[in-house]
Amino acid sequence: MPQTIPLSWYLVLSAVLFALGAAGFVFRRNIITMFMSIELMLNAVNLTFIAFAYHLRQVDGQVFAFFVMVVAAAEAAVGLAIILTVFKNRATLQVDEIASMKN
């Protein structure tokens, strides 16, 4: 078994997770699941940051990943508050049915 793993494997893992997140965001119609797909994409990006922090032997990438986590937490708090409000007013979580501005 080789002692080193190519950096590209980490990056491809990140790309796969990002694509899955994007797919979830596009395909799913439940607002909460869409939101979770965004979190998945953010996680994938974090992996890239940390992989490059390793590659460049710098701690800055990790600091940036830290900021992403903080922002994701803030975003989750506000986003879920918005979802609660939407559900209160529309009684649905399907994004297709929240279309009162359409037509």
């Binding site: 793993i5 190519p6 950096l7 590209s8 990056l11 491809v12």
Partner: peptide, 18 residues
């Protein structure tokens, strides 16, 4: 995904390890 993987494998060949 294909483009991303292609670019990644081109930029970071197997020799760049962790």
């Amino acid at each position: 995904l294909t483009i991303l993987s292609f670019v990644i494998f081109r930029m970071y060949p197997r020799s760049v390890g962790v």
